[in-house]
């Protein structure tokens, strides 16, 4: 075989191998919960995008803010218009790296933590988020639960409210990642 062809195939193989390490979803679930005296506030987003590179542990999560579904649509409108200002800041984003990358080629459950930058409402914070990876055949399920302090992200809570919102919101993610 011609040398050039061999090298080209080698190059392609390497590139393919690198690509094959990606696990992703476009329909990840992100939900949040806020304790309020009158009525607890919760919303769900089923359009979260997440990509994990199982080789080097790079991870990216993108949450479209307007896709959060609230049972109370007026609350949803206020959430977009006044709290998260989704016109200006359409996404929440996490860009990070797993601190220790387990061998994800073997089925099992692995506790992991990812260190990186969490961008919400235009404010980026360095955070370490804990989670769990469950490897099951062709899919990896990533779950993660953490808290967001609204003041850290310059999300103001109005002074006059019936529905007083907790200053810290619980966030839970469930991503079923499949091999790209």
């Amino acid at each position: 075989m011609h040398m050039k062809t061999v090298l080209l195939m080698l190059g392609l193989a390497l590139t393919f191998q690198a690509r094959a390490q990606l696990f992703l979803t476009q329909t990840g679930e992100t939900r949040f919960f806020s304790k309020a005296p009158l009525e607890d506030i919760s919303a769900i987003n089923k359009k979260t995008g997440a990509v994990l590179n199982t080789q080097n542990g790079d991870v990216v999560v993108r949450v479209p803010i307007t896709e959060f579904q609230f049972p109370n649509k007026l609350m949803q409108e206020h959430f977009n218009e006044n709290y998260l200002e989704s016109d200006k800041f359409p996404y929440a984003m996490f860009r990070g790296k797993l601190q220790d990358v387990p061998d994800l080629s073997k089925p099992g459950s692995y506790d992991v933590s990812a260190k990186g930058s969490f961008d919400l409402h235009g404010v980026k914070l360095d955070r370490v988020l804990k989670g769990k990876l469950v490897v099951d055949g062709e899919k990896i399920t990533l779950t993660s639960e953490f808290q967001v302090a609204l003041v850290d992200h310059k999300i103001d809570i109005p002074k006059i409210v019936f529905q007083k919102i907790a200053e810290t919101v619980d966030v839970r993610n469930t991503f079923v990642l499949v091999k790209k």
Binding site: L10, G11, T15, L22, N53, N56, V60, R95, G116
Partner: peptide, 23 residues
């Protein structure tokens, strides 16, 4: 070129490139 392409493909997949895999 090919070697460089092959070897550097992995580290070059930084988080922003990961994002390109999404819609």
């Amino acid at each position: 070129f090919l070697l460089a392409g092959g070897f550097f493909a992995t580290p070059a997949l930084a988080q922003d490139d990961l994002l390109n895999n999404l819609d």
